[in-house]
Computed example of a mutant assay.
Amino acid sequence: MKTTEMALLVQDAVLLPDGRIEVRIASPSQLSMIANVFKGQYPLAFAAAKAHSPLPCYVTATQCDIIDFNQLEDDSLSIVLEGRQRVKILSAAQQRNQIWIARTLPCANWRNEPIAGEFEIISAALEQFYEVNPDLLGLYSQTHLEDATWVSQRWLEVLPMYNKDKLILVEQPNCHKTMNFVLQLLKSHVGA
């Protein structure tokens, strides 16, 4: 498999394939990085921040596209990212301008599969979550509540968990452990 150099955007969040997130870009180095991505110098990878590590982030990241942007009142930039492809960070180096460039290797995305049986509650709960969080729902032109992979990845993005725990689930070969985890969470919440 071929490795690719990517500009690395590190945040305290997780973005997975087909997911969307709005990020505020304020520092001159981040603005420069986004300009380089727009110029086609590098693809962009989004990774969850990791403290006390030689790398600024976890090794599991997601290649993403910038699908929208707006200038905010304080002159910072708001960008909307959409995850495309999971990648593994093999190495990363910080340039003089503070931008991190990572050497990445593509990883298999989870395959789409239908939600069935007791797992349909996970989809219904995500739909309710989006109803009470319309800003998050507004990032999507359409939802895929019938797809177990799409639903489980959206749950991983929004659940209030440590990133290291989310990434243990992300690194599984499919969405099944995540589906079981979210189902148990919902059952324990209903029983409380």
Rank of each mutant, 00 (worst) to 15 (best):
M1A: 09
K2A: 15
T3R: 03
E5V: 12
L8G: 00
L8N: 00
V10F: 06
A13R: 12
D18E: 15
R24P: 01
I25H: 02
A26L: 07
S27L: 14
S27W: 11
S29Y: 08
S29C: 13
Q30N: 12
Q30F: 07
A35D: 01
V37G: 01
P43T: 02
F46E: 00
A49S: 09
A49G: 00
H52E: 10
S53K: 00
L55F: 04
V59M: 15
T60M: 08
A61C: 11
C64D: 04
I66L: 10
N70M: 15
L72C: 11
D74A: 11
R84I: 15
R84V: 14
R86Q: 08
I89T: 10
S91Y: 08
S91W: 07
W100Y: 11
W100V: 00
A102W: 00
A108T: 10
N109D: 14
N112L: 13
F119A: 09
E120V: 14
E120I: 08
I121E: 09
S123A: 11
E127A: 10
D135I: 06
D135S: 09
L139F: 09
Y140T: 08
L145V: 13
A148H: 03
W150D: 07
V158F: 12
M161F: 08
Y162D: 10
D165L: 15
I168D: 09
T178D: 09
T178A: 13
M179S: 05
L183E: 10
L185N: 02
H189R: 05
